[in-house]
């Protein structure tokens, strides 16, 4: 086994050169180059992180803007709907007014007509009374030969009519 057989003659050269070479590896590569490589990785990670954060911010902002737009839109819609409703209410009120005015006119005409009818009826009744009292007067005169004054005939007729 050369590792043991040659130990005495080679150990010093092995250890010396290992320290020299591993020293080179450690100080030049490990200390000098590795931190730079890792720095690059860190820089990249940072950049990626920053980019992602920026993208997230932009996304949040877009969402907020959309939210605001939606709110405005909803408000506008509500306003428009309120306007439409108001117009409907106004129109309904106006037509109501017109209708009631027309109704009133019609009612008045009807009332007038009814009054006229009542007048005509009263006049007719009065005429009937006169005719009846004259008829009664004549009948009494013919049957009994008694001349009855017009006033008593009329009151008798009135009595009968009001009873009838």
């Amino acid at each position: 086994m050369p590792q043991i057989a040659q130990l005495a003659e080679t150990y010093s050269s092995q250890i010396f050169w290992l320290l020299v070479i591993f020293g080179f590896v450690f100080f030049v590569i490990g200390k000098g180059m590795v931190p730079k490589v890792m720095g690059t990785v860190e820089l990249r990670d940072k950049q990626i992180g920053a980019d992602l954060a920026a993208a997230q911010d932009a996304r949040n902002q877009a969402n907020a803007e959309e939210e605001a737009w939606r709110k405005r839109e909803n408000e506008n819609r509500a306003q428009a709907q309120a306007l439409v409703a108001q117009a409907k209410v106004d129109a309904a009120a106006a037509s109501e007014k017109k209708l009631s005015a027309a109704q009133k006119r019609i009612d008045k005409k009807m009332a007038d007509a009814e009054a006229k009818i009542a007048d005509a009826r009263a006049a007719a009744l009065v005429e009937l009374e006169t005719v009846a009292s004259e008829a009664a007067q004549t009948i009494v005169e013919k049957l009994a030969g008694v001349s009855v004054p017009a006033a008593s005939a009329s009151s008798a007729v009135k009595k009968v009519l009001s009873n009838g």
Partner: peptide, 10 residues
């Protein structure tokens, strides 16, 4: 006094 030969191992 220590041998530091440049060997195949080195």
């Amino acid at each position: 006094g220590y041998n530091i030969a440049f060997t195949n191992s080195v």
